[in-house]
Amino acid sequence: MKKSVVIVEMGLRDGLQNEKNVLDSDTRVEFAKRLIEAGTKRVEIGAFVSAKWVPQMAGTAEVIAKTHSLVKSGAISKKIEFSVLVPNERGMQDAIESGVKEVAIFAACSESFSLKNINCTIDESFKRFEPVMALAKKHKIKVRGYLSTCFGCPFEGKVPEARVLKLAQRMHKLGVYEISIGDTIGVADVGQVESLFKKLKKVVPVKKLAGHFHDTRGQALANILAAYKLGVNVFDASLGGLGGCPYAPGATGNVATEDVVYMFHGMGVKTGLNLDKLIQMNSWVAEKIRHPLPAKVGKVGRLMPLGKVVR
């Protein structure tokens, strides 16, 4: 096990896409800036998807343009890696025009979820990836891959490991540099995580695997720890636990960035993130989206206030 991990910040995309209150581009840029000031190095900043279906992601091009201006001015380091989600060739064209150097594609491990989420079968989604990968190669853009519902589907129940392994191999062969294995509805347990990742390591290099856990049933940290012990060193998280999935009834947000950092720092594992700054961001983001965030550490901080009695 390495003594450092990489946290990919999902708050600006997977986090905001399920929020009722739509943030304007300036607020989203400020969100990104504060994350970077807290030490974040990898940020998924938005998505080129239909504003009709995901209005929260409207204005992604404007957010990217304003962020690039901050980079040019020196307000943001050139070393920060920004990415955007693209569902198809049209989204990829928009990404190219925006000037981003990394995109993410996504596929489900459940046919029902694929149809609900992106209105196509799993095979059709992979067909859509072909022109995206060709354009990425032509324009020297990195591509990250997401596999959702790897442990369970809200419509089909438990997802067979064999199917996940097959799709992970298929995505790896496409040429993505990293595959994020997603527990989209927060149904996974440690036993499942250990079993699946042990098998995944045999078909995809572990350095190309990442974990994406939602905390619907309070198991995300335990699942992250289980994956880490098997050699996974990249994890997706969302500031404050923002998010959820509009196509997965009852699913809460990604595991909170602050909670993940608190756990790893307690183990002596470096994240490169400033926990105090992340905690300070919690109230700022909650004010912008107009409701409290589910993060534990973000609410109470590092220590209990003096004089408090814990029962």
Rank of each mutant, 00 (worst) to 15 (best):
E30I: 05
E111D: 08
Y228W: 10
I141Q: 13
L23G: 02
G74C: 02
E287Q: 09
C120Q: 13
L293M: 06
K33D: 09
P55G: 07
L293R: 12
N119P: 12
G307T: 08
K229H: 10
I105H: 04
K78Y: 07
Q93P: 01
Q219M: 13
G59C: 04
I80E: 06
T40N: 12
V6I: 14
K199F: 06
V310E: 15
Q280P: 03
K270H: 14
M281E: 08
V103H: 02
E9F: 00
V159T: 13
L278K: 03
Q219D: 06
V206M: 11
I45H: 04
V143W: 06
I7N: 08
W284I: 00
F155M: 07
K41W: 05
V203T: 11
E178S: 05
A32K: 02
E9V: 00
V203W: 11
A188N: 13
L239I: 08
A248M: 01
P246T: 09
E9I: 06
M267Y: 07
V132F: 03
L174P: 07
L196A: 11
G145T: 10
D14N: 11
M1N: 08
K79L: 04
A251S: 15
A210R: 11
D189N: 14
K201M: 11
A210M: 14
S283L: 05
V206C: 12
V285A: 02
T27S: 14
K201W: 06
A136R: 14
N223F: 00
S283T: 09
K270V: 12
S180K: 07
K202D: 08
V164I: 02
L306K: 14
V63F: 07
R163P: 09
E130A: 12
G91W: 11
V297G: 03
K101R: 14
S50F: 12
G307S: 05
T252S: 15
M281C: 04
A251P: 05
L273W: 01
C109Q: 01
A188C: 12
E287M: 02
S69A: 15
D14M: 01
